[in-house]
Design a binder for these strands. Sequence first.
DNA 1: AGTGACCGGGAGGACCAGAG
DNA 2: CTCTGGTCCTCCCGGTCACT
Length: 222
Amino acid sequence: MREISDTLPASPSRDLSSAVEDFGMEEATNSGSTWTWEQEKAFENALAVYAEESSNRWVCVAADVDGKTEEEVRRHFEILIEDIDGIESGRVPLPSYVSSSEGSAEDIGGNKGKKSSSNATGKKLPRTYQERRKGIAWSEDEHRLFLLGLDKYGKGDWRSISRNFVVSRTPTQVASHAQKYFIRLNSMNKERRRSSIHDITTPAGVDKDGDDVTATAATTEQ
DNA sequence: AGTGACCGGGAGGACCAGAG
DNA sequence: CTCTGGTCCTCCCGGTCACT
């Protein structure tokens, strides 16, 4: 597993472009205009608020992002989509997350068969014999890839997300992660919360509350 | 069309680690 | 030390497909 600190932002002002760089993607903000951390935050919030089908989506998004025009926000979004397409088509290599616990990438919950609490041999093992696997924490990069996949394939297509984005995780693991992620999202209004990787709600590294979570996520990274 | 097997997502809880 | 967060396990249920 790649040390999370290797990819951590030097400062909270790190924006989408640098986050994108971490995935080996091309510069996200090459449109000539620079984006501040606040603008990125507003941009991402607006994307979540205004539906894709909305005819005046970019007008609304631009209105939410200080100092940016409709054209600029639209271009910014297109670049993001290009990056996603690049990942999907394989043109852009994904980071490798091979770890010592490589086996975990195999279907851990692996209950391929329905209602089967079985191991590889198909026989159910008593809990005492079944060494419970230690959880392998999701890295920040994995979570970002998850968000990209979620954006691309939508909720429910965990297999595609696993195959094309979070290749180091099985569909079952992705689904499980998503489940807790959405639970977390739904409890967003709770006042006191521990910082968590699920605070990252967009691939760009800025959450909807405006907290830069890259640093906090790093502190929780094991 | 009916039936059964298989597959995959959702839900809920067990368990562990670590923040508070 | 307590409690919350994160991951994994297990079960349930609905959808799909092959077979009759």
